[in-house]
Design a protein around this nucleic acid. Structure first.
Lengths: 192, 192
DNA sequence: CTTATTTTTTACCAAATGTTAAAAAAATTC
DNA sequence: GAATTTTTTTAACATTTGGTAAAAAATAAG
């Protein structure tokens, strides 16, 4: 049960049987159909999710345009962090790109778990440290690399995403328009 | 003693006198002259610092060019995170932009503190959560805003930095060349 | 204070990306 | 499976940013 989660978490700490059992009562399974929402605009993100199946995106409305800040790879934690950490209304929206099966843990329960089991507190810290490192490397990409290189890197790192996620979301994630992505893909296809 | 640190930390948890005292033996003060290094390339970032005075920058060498990924505002934690969390050699370099007075805590001591005092573990997690949120909003800026807007926002948010930090570092932080920043500043100066 | 070095600015042209509009392709709905 | 809607592609032109080179300004060194 929860094999993917267990494996993910084990990267960061060796949990005892006891500690592992402690989280189970707090896990809810939630299924989302494609295009359904996990967090709506203005709603407080009261929970975090682990994507057992499917892909989520984190976006927000910017002058009527949807800006996709993140596309979740498989088997990762996703939440609208600014809302989650402060428990205030979210400007970010989380939506299912494909049908999803999520493991959901409520903020208050997780905080309880953190207080009760310092090993879980450690896991929480280590997970976010790693996600932070990932995000920093994305900053480097924006600073140093043109869109074409960012696109190629994304293809390499997340090939599966391209089989499931509309190109317009990917374009936004890369920081370009879908027209530019289209042009760029053509020039990549023909020898450079 | 350590008033700025105490104030910073108090945003995230109410530490008891006891918990606060526990960190003190682990704090070292280190002074850096302008342009001196806090972390060198290839060195393991064995410590984290809190900038009591002065400004640091996080950079790396990219094809012979120095890329400034971050410029620390006053009174924040700074380290080469990828190296710090994994205790492996750092590709990132941390250098003093101005004379600095740093509070330094070694990784191993901090981990000890985390294990011993769950409240400190909590502080560590909350601090990194907040820094993560900041970094995410920088991603949004790269996706949605042209360099001129990013520049203006930076002026608003960190006016003090412009009095202490060379423009070439700021340009790199914004993801543009110093020539572009120069042009951009001129067009901002004259009515838009 | 003078000289050398570094940083910032300017200019011109090239390359990358955005904007607008429309066509083509794909997916969805009835 | 035909019609509708959405997504992707294409095109022409505008704007932003980069690259190269050199001048001007500021800073550091002797």
């Amino acid at each position: 049960m929860y094999e993917e989660l267990k494996q993910f978490v084990s990267q960061f700490a060796n949990l005892s049987q006891d500690e592992w059992e402690a989280v189970k009562p707090f896990i809810e399974i939630r299924n989302l159909k494609k295009n359904e929402y996990f967090v709506r605009e203005g709603e407080i993100a009261r929970y975090i999710s682990f994507t057992q199946k499917g892909y989520l995106r984190v976006l927000y409305n910017h002058d009527g345009n949807e800006i996709t800040r993140d596309i979740s790879p498989l088997h990762t934690f996703v939440t609208a962090l600014p809302s989650y950490v402060s428990q205030t209304p979210s400007f970010e929206i989380i939506q299912a790109i494909t049908d999803c099966e999520l493991l959901v843990i409520y903020h208050d329960n997780l905080e309880f778990l953190y207080d009760r089991y310092s090993n879980w507190q450690r896991v929480g810290r280590r997970v976010i440290e790693e996600m932070f490192v990932q995000t920093q490397s994305r900053i480097y990409a924006f600073i140093t690399q043109p869109a074409e290189v960012r696109y190629k890197e994304m293809m390499k790192q997340f090939p599966d995403i391209f089989q499931h996620v509309p190109l317009q979301y990917i374009a936004s994630y890369l920081g370009i328009t879908s027209q530019s992505l289209s042009r760029l893909r053509r020039s990549v296809q023909f020898g450079e």
